[in-house]
Design a protein around this nucleic acid. Structure first.
Lengths: 202, 202
DNA sequence: CGGAAAGCTGAACCGCTGTTCAGGCTACTC
DNA sequence: GAGTAGCCTGAACAGCGGTTCAGCTTTCCG
């Protein structure tokens, strides 16, 4: 199955990008991990550049689907403050799986700076993320947890920015900003916009 | 002069890192731009890895000195709200020179994730940055512009995180987050912590 | 069955680039 | 003036790794 093999190659490429850095990725190693020959990799992706670009695209489309849902629906288990706190927590690079995503994310940033072709990929993921967060905020407003005058989009933008900025520092093992401190910074930034106490978002 | 030549090589390396990406940097090109031979580069830096690492360190020590002052003093031209607004504005990747610094910054993030040796470089710059912003906030409190109960360190941490997160999106040409929107996000995040109106930080 | 298309492979090619080596030039010291 | 140390160079080496190529096997279809 062509689709299957190509996907396996892309997965292998993503793994290696996260592990060793996009520029350290060698076609031979991708092939090896995917159980294929280098020629087969070239059969599906004419050039190394194309392989890497497709790998990033593949990764982020799939990551977006996983996290934000294919249809974009919000998990309505517990709308309100708790749901927002949960959303924040699972966005930070605390556990292993998220660490991988974060590394890929920073790789994409850097690559997209120089390759405008990739920017829409990043922008699209930001859009979905923003929409997802804004929906959580809206649900919280509807549930009466937040100030009805709050601007969900603005809150989402601020939250994403703090998450990105603080997340990087967590990844860098900054002694001043661990996972818990990062969470507190997000809460401190958006709580006033929602008219709640920062501790409510813990 | 040995010091001089080594510095010239490091400068050339930084330029190329910013322009083409750290992994695309070729010793021959560094040498060319520095007006030297590849052998001379190896005379000062035994290996390519060492050259690149030293270049990043050189860049950020110097950047910190330029921006935050060697002695760490705060420019006291206009303490208070205006000073903070100015500090925010000049931290964002708006103009050309800042763009270069931002690219190098993201390169450092990515490299430091995989090379723990570099993390102290990043952490140190964050420390200086944080101290600088906190001093601006303190000056504003002393001037009576901000809530006396505000926590300067917390404000600085939140501001840095939003600046980083929003700055990346500016660099990615995100249609939703340009330089002005980025500035507004920082203001929205920290204004409540300072007890001022976000518009005051425009 | 015949044949084309798709999936896949091993081996060879070859250009790029980090690194090394042998030595030249300058400048300073005894 | 001889020696020595530092600065610097051109040329050659060597290996990595992307890419190509010729051809094998399998599948699909008329």
């Amino acid at each position: 199955m062509a689709q299957d093999t190509a996907a396996r190659i892309l997965e292998a490429a993503c793994d290696l990008i996260a592990e060793e850095g996009i520029d350290a990725v060698r076609i031979a190693r991708v092939a090896q991990r995917a159980g294929a020959s280098t020629s087969l990799v070239h059969h599906y992706f004419s050039t190394r550049e194309e392989l890497l670009e497709q790998a990033l695209i593949h990764s982020f489309e799939r990551a977006g689907d996983d996290r934000f849902g294919v249809a974009g629906e919000v998990a309505e288990t517990a709308p309100g403050t708790a749901a927002l706190a949960e959303a924040i927590r699972e966005s930070l690079p605390a556990q292993g799986e998220q660490e991988r995503e974060w590394v890929l994310w920073v790789e994409l940033w850097l690559r997209a700076v120089r390759e405008p072709d990739l920017r829409p990929v990043a922008n699209r993921l930001y859009d979905r993320y923003r929409e997802w967060l804004a929906a959580v905020v809206r649900a919280g407003i509807a549930a009466g947890d937040f100030d009805p005058g709050a601007d969900p989009e603005a809150v989402a933008d601020v939250a994403m920015a703090v998450l990105d900025g603080a997340g990087v520092r967590v990844m860098l093992d900054d002694p001043g900003v661990g996972a818990e401190r990062a969470r507190a910074l997000v809460a401190a930034a958006i709580a006033p916009m929602l008219g709640v106490d920062p501790d409510a978002l813990a």
